[in-house]
Amino acid sequence: MRRRLATFLHRHARVRLSLLLSAPLAWLGLAYLGALAALLVTAFWSTDTFTGNLIRTFTWANFEDLVTGEVYRTIALRSLGVAAAVTLIDLVVAFPMAFAMAKLASPRAQRWLVIAVLTPLWASYLVKAYAWRVLLSADGLLGWGYGLGATILTLSYLWLPYMILPIYAGLERLPNSLLDAAGDLGARGWRTFRTVVWPLAFPAVVAGSIFTFSLSLGDYITVKIVGGRSQLIGNVVYDNIGAANNLPFAAAVATVPVLIMLVYLAAVRRTGALENL
């Protein structure tokens, strides 16, 4: 029986393939894209303020409010700025760190450094955010106070490993011989970096930036903890679901980061970086 099944599968490549792909495709289709589709559909509904029930009739009202409300534009731009700043800071911090890990450290030290980078991920997100709250408090170690700057700083800390690891992996694949060749041909450090290391590590940098950018764009807890009086897109979504029970409007707001990410991914694709991942 088993043998016949094996023969059958061997002869029918398509059946074999469909069996292999059915689980991941079901996951992608139902759990992932399905949820996104549901979100998009909900955004065109409204809620009854008396009963709190969804009214399943098509309306553009949520998007009209979103587009005409000046406050939402401000918040979207602010969120975009925060995500960009976090990505930039993480890149500046992560690149030298990843380079040192991949090219300078001994294999033994390399392992320990990877563990050291990963360790903060084992601690709870909330604990780390509150630790920063204590650090930044008026009588804390840093005492810089709360606000947008504190949010950017805390997010940069939280997402740093997600930037270091892809760059580290990318740089590790970069043969040392290329660096030696550049040196032999007379290139100094900066020139080697600009013409050899950076172009080859760029896809890895893009991969890291996708993580830090999208994670920052969706965050609403850190800004609640250290953001003082500021708010980001995530808070608008949270307030509309958690407080107002207005799922449709929250869904409409939630399409904003989705759109931003699609634009970002499209831009990245044009650079050809995704093919090299």
């Binding site: 809620t47 406050v71 939402y72 708010q231 307030d239 509309n240 107002a244």
Partner: peptide, 15 residues
């Protein structure tokens, strides 16, 4: 003003 409007106003207040 109903609570949905209160919520939107709150978003606007926080800016």
């Amino acid at each position: 003003k109903d609570y949905a409007e209160w919520t939107r106003a709150w978003t606007e207040i926080k800016g």
